[in-house]
Nucleic acid binder design. Structure first.
Lengths: 352, 352
DNA sequence: TTGAAAGCGCTAACAA
DNA sequence: TTGTTAGCGCTTTCAA
């Protein structure tokens, strides 16, 4: 095809796109349409878009103009199929109704987006029930990487993930046996640390209010074990339904006071639960921190502004997302990265 | 190929998969591998998986067994490319850090999943800034439908959406000029209704505390206009940064009391803001509802359990998600559906 | 009921 | 620097 001096006019563009052979049915524009309009080959269009540095500026501009004239949007299904790079990273989070993982997802999106990848989000629900079906659907899209929140997965899931040859990052937890890569912190350490934190402040009659999820259970376990190690009375344990709400926190404190009147320190598995405890305490005229100390988990935006300000376990969720994204991208590029423990800190505020 | 009486043994399967020609490099298993193992053609495998009723039970079982023996996961990129049905529906939400849209997304996922579609989630951020780039990336995946939260989009976005021939559902708002389909409610009506709600309870010195987003702005506008129509003093307006937090609610009430001491009714653009107002009021010993009435928006799970229980505007977010999903799926199947106004209700609790 | 051929839109590999 | 050829894995179409 003879190279044109410039991009044809709009009507000419339309004629070129629709083609002379079949002017009837509407087709989506393809590289070939763009190529025809720009007066180059399909391959040159592809290169101009994907490896701009390998194409002279003049050609690049012609192609760019043709892309705009034809409203071309590359078919990423075809790109992915041919190049075996879908430029898609999947993330599986337990749920979206809590906001705990929000900043992780946000950071994932941003970091991946900057590297030219798009995030595909799946909800596993708390529990491994629908996880297999979800995974099947995700793996079928041939993502270049998979980010998981949590390390508790069915053997079938682990097997499928390990077998499909895709980089996997597990997050928000540590385990000695990761499927592949790992970015998280030790929930066991959190439980122990919070117990010592409360004990150090003279709280000896402890309690845990916890939603029924695996990570919270690990925190509870070491919290209780540490209390025992410190020679304290066995902490009361109250389990609430997930997703945990302010209401279940209030109810938990009522139950706690009814059955364990001496309680003077409460560790809640989420800040919202803790806010419920604060609310109920205020309502009943129970002094916080005077009579009861309260510690939450997550250091949500509202924790610092609660009344009294809520002590909480701070985890850098954004960093987890960022590091997970970098690991996936790095692995795709051939650079392996070691397990990262992002740690946590206890933010001491008035409530304890 | 001769049909086998049964599926070959594991080693035979491996030999068939890896192929004699090139036993070296690992390939992902394809329909051809499954076909070889099942002793049928690729086409029959495809049919057995996608249109089971068109294949006799015996054949179907052979294929099913072969799928399991080979750990076959269909390449949905190829499926989508060839069939022009990606079985993907994209949703664009402003953000994931608030939980307001959580139940909508949850319902979308569930309803779409039941219909064999998968949800692809994108965050536009509050504002039309990155929306174009996001849209480009989404349209490139050739989704079978797109669900938008909100009706405020740049002309370029609207044009691209209208032009790409994909079913679009806008949600969480109403507009006389939808791009395609629409499921929402009138934010203008909300503002007016809340104003009348407060006025009817003897609140005449009103105020609005609002995050800077377009939907909240519409509510504020009619709230103010209605106050004027009712002959009330012009409501004080306080704008807070997004995402709105408990802290900004507290701060807003402080500002309000300093500058408009007579205020006796506050409409907040989110329940979290309202919770902040409640918190600050309690802290300053200002009686709610005695001296000030407070109304939130969203009827989040914590609203009913706040102290005092928070009056709020309830919107059935799950229904919006469900109906949006049904509309997308219906439209793909060729059944158009009209605009749906899901309405709202004011849940009257103690705070106002 | 099953299979063979063709091609979805793109890019890897090679050639000019 | 640019183009040609082939084929990614699947399903549409048509024929048996």
């Amino acid at each position: 095809m003879t190279p044109h001096a410039s991009i044809p006019l709009k009507q000419e563009v339309n004629r070129l796109i629709s083609g002379i052979a079949e002017p009837g049915r509407q087709r989506a524009t393809t590289v070939l349409d763009v190529a025809r309009v720009a007066g180059v080959s399909a391959m040159t269009v592809s290169r101009a878009l994907n490896q701009p540095q390998r194409v002279p500026a003049a050609t690049r501009q012609r192609v760019q103009a043709a892309v705009e004239a034809t409203h071309y949007v590359p078919n990423l299904l075809a790109c992915g199929l041919r190049s075996r790079r879908s430029r898609l990273v999947a993330a599986i989070v337990p749920a979206l109704d809590s906001t705990v993982f929000g900043e992780t997802v946000q950071a994932l999106t941003t970091t991946l987006g900057g590297a030219g990848y798009q995030l595909m989000l799946g909800q596993s629900g708390y529990g491994a029930a629908g996880e297999d079906a979800l995974l099947q659907a995700i793996v079928g899209r041939r993502p270049d990487g998979i980010v998981l929140v949590g390390v508790d997965h069915s053997p079938r899931t682990r097997e499928q993930l390990a077998g499909c040859g895709v980089p996997v990052v597990e997050t928000w937890d540590l385990t000695p046996t990761p499927i592949d890569m790992l970015v998280g912190f030790s929930h066991a350490d959190v439980g122990a640390a919070v117990c010592r934190f409360l004990a150090a402040r003279g709280r000896h009659h402890l309690a845990v209010v916890s939603g029924a999820d695996a990570r919270a259970a690990r925190r509870t376990q070491t919290f209780v074990a540490t209390a025992e190690a410190l020679g304290l009375p066995a902490p009361a344990q109250i389990e609430v339904t997930v997703p945990s709400t302010l209401g279940s926190g209030r109810q938990a404190l009522r139950g706690l006071l009814a059955q364990h009147a001496a309680v003077d320190g409460v560790f809640c598995s989420s800040d919202m639960l803790a806010l419920g405890v604060l609310t109920e305490a205020a309502h009943q005229g129970i002094a916080v921190p005077g009579r009861i100390g309260v510690v939450g988990f997550g250091d949500q935006p509202f924790a610092a502004d609660a009344e009294p300000a809520l002590s909480s376990v701070r985890v850098d969720g954004a960093r987890i997302g960022r590091e997970a994204a970098l690991r996936v991208v790095g692995r795709i590029a051939g650079t392996p990265a070691p397990t990262l423990d992002v740690g946590f800190s206890i933010v001491s505020r008035r409530s304890a």
